[in-house]
């Protein structure tokens, strides 16, 4: 019976559901996860890379983390090709705002403009909604550091710590338990790695499977920094998530 309401993204089922939107969210539940944590002096994003093969040409750019403007970055979970389109529109929006006002775009406005695009596909149609969830990390002069999470329906909300992708519910409840309001950026990195190590399917966590990015303020300027694999390996050792090489071999 419900089949009749499956094929159209813009039609409610008799139970008041939009199946295509729910399926899109389901698709994200299988994607590599990402965690974001808001700290007193910055925002931390950690993501799990799903495709790791020795044959894969490792590109210089990141796979899950994208810089949108000097003061905003995002982590992605879901269909990457869909995400690329949305990231492009977000970048255009951010530049348009700077063109009009000669000021960086407030983070929430950027998130909202992107979610308006997502929402459009659940109402005005198209073939399917965007199968992407985002974690946005940013800083602006009105509200300081901010973390937002968005889903395929075009909903968004601000969080102190959030998780998207595979096992996001387990990760979310662990974050809820361990998050403190006065957490520093270093502690946030540590917490994010620990949570991800427990919720990821793979047994050992290595720098090839992870990406770590941070948004913080240094010398009065907002900085977006992606952690190099070497530093990430050291961080993993320090937080005790992986054992030293001598023991594992």
């Amino acid at each position: 019976m419900s089949r009749r309401y499956d094929s159209r993204t813009t039609i409610f089922s008799p139970e008041g559901r939009l199946y295509q939107v729910e399926y899109a969210m389901e698709a994200i539940g299988n994607a590599g996860s990402a965690i974001g944590i808001l700290s007193t002096n910055g925002v931390v994003l950690v993501g799990e890379k799903k495709v790791t093969s020795k044959l894969l040409q490792t590109s210089a750019s990141t796979e899950k983390m994208y810089k949108i403007d000097d003061h905003v970055a995002c982590a992605v979970a879901g269909i990457m090709s869909d995400a690329n389109i949305l990231i492009n529109t977000a970048r255009v929006q951010a530049q348009r705002y700077t063109y009009a006002y000669q000021e960086p775009m407030p983070v929430e406005q950027l998130v909202q403009s992107l979610c308006d695009t997502k929402q459009g596909y659940t109402q005005f149609g198209g073939l399917r909604p965007f199968g992407v969830s985002f974690l946005f990390a940013g800083w602006d002069k009105n509200y300081g550091f901010q973390l937002y999470m968005s889903d395929p329906s075009g909903n968004y909300s601000g969080w102190k710590a959030a998780a998207i992708g595979a096992n996001n519910q387990a990760a979310q409840s662990m974050l809820k338990q361990d998050y403190k309001d006065d957490i520093t950026r270093d502690e946030a990195v540590d917490l994010a790695l620990k949570v991800l190590s427990k919720t990821m399917d793979s047994t050992s966590l290595t720098s090839e499977k992870l990406e770590l990015a941070e948004v913080f303020v240094s010398n009065g300027k907002v900085k977006y920094q992606v952690c190099s694999p070497e530093t990430l390996s050291k961080l993993l050792l320090k937080s005790g998530v992986t054992q030293p090489a001598a023991e594992t071999s």
Binding site: Y99, A100, Y101, Q102, E103, P106, E108, N142
Partner: peptide, 17 residues
């Protein structure tokens, strides 16, 4: 729309635009 006012600089640049 945004719950925050434009700064004077932003309003000036908008007007110029």
């Amino acid at each position: 729309r945004n719950g925050i006012p434009l700064t004077t600089a932003a309003a000036a640049n908008f007007t110029r635009g």
